[in-house]
């Protein structure tokens, strides 16, 4: 089910996000990482991602700003937010801004994998439905 799912992971904690990317790769996802918002936006502009995992607390451009920018470039891409205990309020804000879901750090990799599967499945169905009714 995870076959050919392209995921972008964005967090300024480089070590953490690299490890997370590795563990998701083991579960069959194709992953790329970015360490700050602008870099992530550039990658989204260039590549096609099914979903983006975004840390809320980042210096400079924070997760919510990045979310808005990503959604502007590609409204179909699904976003999952990672929040810490200090930024729980961002969960609601993010969901109101169109994020698919949130997870609270520390992240359980399996839970993230489930969420990503659901998010990508939703994206696939929505696109399929859109093409069906365009026909």
């Amino acid at each position: 089910m995870t076959h050919e799912l392209n995921i972008l992971l964005v967090d300024d904690e480089a070590e953490f996000i690299q490890r997370l990317a590795e563990r998701l790769s083991l579960r069959g996802f194709k992953t790329q990482v970015a360490y700050e918002g602008p870099g992530a936006i550039e990658l989204v502009r260039r590549g096609a991602f099914h979903a983006v995992v975004l840390d809320v607390m980042m210096p400079g451009m924070d997760g919510l700003q990045t979310l808005n920018a990503v959604k502007k470039i590609d409204s179909d891409v699904e976003v999952i937010l990672l929040t810490g205990h200090t930024s729980l309020e961002a969960a609601l804000e993010g969901i109101q801004a169109g994020a698919f879901d949130y997870l609270v750090k520390p992240v359980d990799v399996d839970e993230l994998a489930f969420r990503l599967q659901d998010a990508c499945e939703k994206r696939r169905l929505q696109i399929k439905q859109a093409t069906n009714s365009d026909r």
């Binding site: 169905l125 069906n132 026909r135």
Partner: peptide
Amino acid sequence: ALETDEALQTGFKLRYLLFKR
């Protein structure tokens, strides 16, 4: 009428996904 069975099938799946969420 123009909606195919397949479209409906997709609709079902999407609804079920939302329902699960």
